[in-house]
Design a binder for these strands. Structure first.
Lengths: 193, 193, 193, 193
DNA sequence: GGGTAAGCGAGACGGTACGTCCTGTCTTTGC
DNA sequence: GCAAAGACAGGACGTACCGTCTCGCTTACCC
């Protein structure tokens, strides 16, 4: 066991993560310092280092601790509508203020720190992918999605254009954009017969 | 005129960018410091600050200075083959050692520094997109690509899945993956009629 | 009663003091930490703080616990010989390895911590002085020492040059040096008549 | 050359030493921290570490920088009177507030740090000793001091009792005490003939 | 062809944060 | 029922870079 009094320890952990998010909102991830988090949380630096080995992982944990139960898929029988609804929900949360910039920073940090990349994948991307695949498989069985599609690849083609916009061109992610991506992906690029 | 002796200045600029790349290869972008670059290049820190306002932009310039003339599109008349060839070339360069990790770091930095994001877009992404669009427009006119497709969106659906793999799941980008993406995008997700 | 099981407590106290001395020998007093003593002694820090209020006093206790019964004065009837023998014994113990450096450190600590200074005086210097004075008084009565001498002052003039060497010039304290000091003090600085 | 602008650098050095002394007066040497000195002096910590390798040597330099030209010997022809005058001057300065406690702390630190001990000897004790010996040699030639006395030893017997009082018994050092020491040393401990 | 200005290396500087160590207090758990 | 184990807030350590700032040297340009 790590801690003598789990409740106390858990409370402190939460305090630190809240301070982290608050400060990140105020100054941005780049200027976030463990020193400042400790001060804000009223905590010794060691208490942070005891829990997290790096600023990146602290930040990852803090963001994931929000953990709004957003991510359960609807199943109305219409795969395009369900995908649209799900994607819009996630996009609203992760690609717009207040969390958008922080999620962006998190992905940025994952490019510098393999541990953050691994955590991000295991704890956010992979579960999200799994749920999407479950829904897509049902759609395949219902004949709404081409049966020879690798569903991991489908996840990538769905998510990719959104991340491209979020991370590369950094234009705003609108519901309209989601619609157009879905439409294009279902239609395919080949000319209509 | 910027410099009393343009040749000297240009040479120094190049030296600095080479030192930047060399050091970045050795220690990674995250641990790169302007102090170390200056020392490695045998140059005063001021000489760097006079040329670049931040580590990120120095790094952007350094990477782009490689500027291998890779990016001109072939036009064999077969859009899928041409896209494949082009994308594979870029992927081989930017998503594999030795430059892959550094390009990844550059995109990561763009998430923290708007100036880097802007530079990356204007100087690398946008030109690349423009060339792609030219080639796609030709394909549209030849009836190889659906005529009602927004070509900017096509660029995003082509690039997105690759960036998703590079930045998010961080799995290796293979030619096979490029093939599968192209195939899926041209076929579309809807079931075969 | 202080402790439920006095023997146990006394044993623990001894263990701690031994660990203190062992560590002090290894790393020196300056780098000694209560944390390390606790770890070495296999004891909680609290157990140390319960017994000693400061590192200095712990160290003082530890050193005095050696308490070799060195310090009883001989009385052969020859005051100079007796002083010489006594001083040499003390010097051999306190001004040479292994205890010399630690005694030096203890006196050093007394300069920073009044409690250590007080303890050192009461528990080591004063008793030593008292015994010396007893012997000197006998010598005075026998006519071997000038009768109008303040014996506390004599103690200071005997000890002072030795401490000066130990603490200030930090040269080695030899029996020969002891001889010369005694000779000089008994002869006085005035020229021979 | 160490510094581009010697005057600036010297001024900063002085500022730091003054801040050191001021803080040492306020909180004592034991609680003095380089961090606090830097803050008080309005200086980066590095600027201190660039000049001094340890708190002890900074403190040594700071104290010696007072360097009041106190220490030149009078020569009235009467060695006892001259010694008395000289010793009283030094005692007034070094064994009483405001510098007494700090000089005491310096000697204390010398017990923990050999570099401080060496510096103290070379830069303060040795010069002082040399001047004393010059005066004593003159006295020897005039027949006021026994001619077979080792003058280094005389210095130790003069200084020792004073340091014993300052460092060990930590009683106040008065002019009267100086008188009694001088008298005892010149008279010798042997009984009057 | 000599004076002046600019670029430059070198590195000092005030700061900020790092990650570590230790202090002295407090809490829990296990023997 | 005490003590080991160690969490904790706090403070200082010594280091690394940041971005700014002189310094003196070396060109090269213009008169």
């Amino acid at each position: 066991m790590t801690t003598s009094h789990p409740d106390r320890a858990a409370a402190r952990t939460k305090t630190i993560m809240q301070a982290t998010l608050a400060l990140a909102q105020e100054v941005g991830y780049a200027k976030l310092s463990i020193e400042a988090v400790a001060a804000r949380a009223g905590v010794g630096k060691h208490t942070i280092y005891r829990r997290w080995p790096s600023k990146g992982l602290l930040f990852l944990d803090s963001l994931l601790s929000l953990n709004e139960p957003v991510f359960d898929y609807p199943d109305t029988g219409d795969i395009v509508a369900d995908l649209r609804r799900q994607i819009c929900t996630v996009v609203d949360l992760l690609a717009n203020p207040p969390w958008g910039p922080l999620y962006q920073a998190l992905v940025g940090e994952a490019q510098h720190d393999p541990a953050v990349a691994a955590g991000l994948n295991e704890r956010f991307i992979r579960p999200q992918t799994d749920k999407t695949i479950v829904r897509l498989r049902a759609a395949q069985e219902q004949g709404q999605v081409s049966s020879d599609m690798d569903l991991d690849l489908v996840m990538a083609t769905l998510s990719g254009p959104l991340y491209f916009r979020l991370l590369i061109t950094q234009e705003p992610l609108t519901h309209n954009y989601v619609d157009r991506v879905l439409e294009a992906l279902f239609a395919g690029m080949s000319p209509r017969l």
